[in-house]
Computed example of a mutant assay.
Amino acid sequence: MYIFTFDFMQRAFIAGIITAVLASAMGVFVVLRRMSMVGDSLSHAALSGVAAGMLFGFYPFYGALIFSALAALFIEAIRKAFKKYAEVALAVVMSGGMGLAVVFISLGKSFNADLFSYLFGSLVAVSPSDVWVISGTGLFIILSLVLLSRELFSITFDEESARLSGIPVGVVNTYFTLLTALAVALSVRVVGTLLVSALMVIPAAVSLQIARSFKATFVIAVGVAVLSVVLGLYISFVFDVAPGGTIVLIAAAILTVVLIVRGFEGKLT
């Protein structure tokens, strides 16, 4: 327990657990709506926001929040224009976000240790102000999910029926994408922009393999994400490795074990 005597580890665990809950909860809806790549698309936009912050002299974390939110609105606009090819929006934002990030990085010559921490996560990068922003925004996202749970459930499983029942599908979809953008931007500090999508998708994939109800899906996904983050942060501290990659590898290992067990169960039955 001596690691908790370090202030930066306390901040890392607080931010990590909050982002684990947010990313995994959002991830369940994202996976069920067959939008698993939305995390990658928004994370590339977040990276361009980080690079813009380094280039123009404002805090990169806030740049990630702003650019992710703008990318979310852009995704919804493209999805409306290409109703039969919604995945086009994700590809456009992903490639555009990466292209913009590369340009900003080259202009500012920003490829340094600070940028590296945004790419792969860092234990010492989480500042006290980051914790306050992550906590406040995280509470807002959780309250939004609770208040919109019925609408999101209806839209996820039958969008047309939800529209006929009077639910403002377009507004809810846009709002949900904005919430996803915020969750992605908040996760950047812990797991990095290149790995944030995995924290959303892998716990959801594990829960969908073993959950027996919709509520259990959320509980299991959150549990897997929190376990992965806690173990990942501890291992990264002990062995001095990047936390983002460690967290993702633990989550992937859990998914692998679950798939192996499910495979054996299938053979036995």
Rank of each mutant, 00 (worst) to 15 (best):
P203Y: 05
I105E: 14
S228M: 03
G99N: 10
V206R: 07
V30D: 01
I235M: 10
L55A: 12
A251N: 08
S187C: 14
F239N: 07
F264D: 04
L107P: 07
V50L: 11
A72C: 11
A69M: 02
I247L: 05
S68M: 08
A183I: 02
G121C: 04
L90R: 13
P60W: 14
V103E: 12
V171N: 05
F104T: 13
S48D: 09
R150G: 01
S197W: 07
V190S: 14
L268Y: 11
L195P: 04
R163A: 14
A86L: 03
V248G: 11
G16F: 08
F176G: 00
A183K: 01
T193K: 10
G170I: 09
S135Q: 04
T269S: 05
I75S: 15
V103Q: 14
T5L: 12
I142L: 13
Y85D: 04
G170C: 06
L148Y: 15
L139V: 13
V201Y: 05
T19H: 03
T177Y: 12
L208G: 04
L70P: 00
G53E: 15
R262K: 15
F176N: 02
A251F: 11
I220T: 12
L123Q: 09
R189Q: 10
E160Q: 13
L179G: 03
I155E: 04
E160C: 08
D40Y: 12
I141G: 05
L178T: 03
G99P: 05
L179H: 01
L55I: 10
F140V: 14
G244I: 06
A12C: 05
M9A: 04
S213K: 12
L179Q: 06
Y85T: 04
L32R: 14
L73P: 00
V146T: 07
S197E: 03
D114S: 08
A113L: 02
V229H: 04
L195G: 05
L73V: 08
S236P: 01
G263K: 14
V224S: 02
K215D: 00
V102M: 15
A225Q: 10
V92F: 12
L147T: 04
F8A: 06
L194K: 09
F4I: 02
G97Q: 14
V30R: 04
F104M: 15
V190F: 15
F111S: 09
A23K: 06
D130Q: 06
S41M: 10
G53D: 14
F237Y: 15
A51F: 09
Q10R: 15
S236M: 08
I141S: 04
A77C: 01
T177C: 03
V188H: 09
V188F: 12
I75C: 14
I78G: 11
F104Y: 15
I250Q: 08
S165C: 01
E76H: 08
E265Q: 06
R262M: 12
F111L: 13
L119D: 02
V206D: 07
M200Y: 06
D114A: 07
G49Y: 11
R150V: 03
L107H: 13
M54Q: 01
Y59I: 06
F218P: 01
A162E: 02
A12K: 08
K80M: 09
R262N: 13
A204R: 01
S41E: 11
T19V: 10
L100F: 14
A89V: 02
